[in-house]
Design a protein around this nucleic acid. Structure first.
Lengths: 194, 194
DNA sequence: GTCTATACAGTGATAGAC
DNA sequence: GTCTATCACTGTATAGAC
């Protein structure tokens, strides 16, 4: 697959449109024609940039993961304490959700994983693994600095944290008045504090 | 909508098939023809039982919620301590997931909520609300009995617990070697203990 | 890089016979 | 309750001109 940094401007506009559609309706809920209408070109022009729908979705997931990792780095630089880093992490999900109840691209694709082309699932798994690894690092550091309770091991807590945020977006989508990911994460975070 | 207790045997076989398909591929990932093939009848016969796809999905969600509530009652009867009840609760999700990585029906539909007929979303929200309410009750009782930490309020912990389980199924679906809902829930539960 | 035209299977849904 | 036949439409994808 071509890396998004080498894509033409048109191709990137296609990725932009597809990303929003995946977050709103999922892989099985949008079509090449939906993308074409959003970008302002015709359906076969999309195929020129991405031969198959799976290629397009994989590109969306790849760029999403890349951008997410950049945000994680930025959080590491801007915040020193574990609780501040985790709060900023939750804000990433909250900001996504605040925009028209958009889901995490990989949360949506993860749910659909069993009906997705292999290449897409691979990109999704990379997203989850990168997030778990980063969270485990942050939590382990916080435990060593005695900012967080030392109790369960960092990797397990990281998995639980990621699952909580992904799940919170999904539940909040259909329950009127439910708290969004930031609120739920705050509850989770409070159980980790020393 | 007709209640499933008044449905014909054929209609129930249709609901069985649709339930499995929704858990595997989601609302937008299955068709009337898929259901017909599983049941062993033709496509228009499905329409005889459920006029629209939305009607069918709503019936699936309704029955799923009803059965889930029965299980919650059973847990209340069989287990007295909060931690045992919560572990049994997590086992419900684990059992679902253990069968071919099946998702919670309402977790899947919740992700797709923005592209679903209104009636389906309503049933999904009832599922989440019933679960949150039950969990809040169990947790509040556990806190009063000093089996759980008294720290954050029971309702917030209940929301976090539900989100964690729903999210854990989704993450585990695309990450090879990730722990399932039971494992992740155990981590969450350990942070609640007194 | 974009277009028109088109192939071809699948979609949810309806009509009407048995 | 199930069927055959069919509807109008949408789906992904391709061929080939500009």
């Amino acid at each position: 697959m071509k890396h998004f940094s080498e894509m033409s401007e048109s191709a990137l506009r296609v990725v932009d449109a597809a990303e929003g559609l995946i977050q709103e309706r999922g892989y099985n809920g949008f079509s090449y024609d939906d993308v074409a209408k959003l970008v302002g070109i015709k359906k076969p022009s999309i195929h020129h940039h991405f031969a198959t729908k799976g290629d397009l979705a994989a590109a969306v997931a790849q760029r999403y993961t890349h951008r997410f990792r950049e945000q994680l780095l930025r959080i590491e630089v801007q915040h020193a304490k574990a609780q501040d880093r985790l709060t900023a992490y939750a804000t990433l999900f909250e900001n996504t959700f605040a925009a028209e109840q958009r889901l995490c691209v990989c949360g949506m694709l993860g749910a659909e994983a069993n009906s997705l082309p292999e290449g897409v699932v691979h990109e999704v798994s990379r997203f989850f693994e990168a997030n778990t690894e980063w969270l485990a690092m942050v939590i382990a550091e916080g435990q060593r600095a005695q900012q967080l309770r030392a109790q369960p091991d960092a990797r397990a807590l990281a998995e639980a944290c990621l699952a909580t945020l992904e799940g919170a977006m999904i539940v909040a989508r259909s329950v009127r008045g439910a708290r969004g990911p930031a609120g739920v994460a705050q509850t989770y975070l409070s159980t980790l504090l020393a």
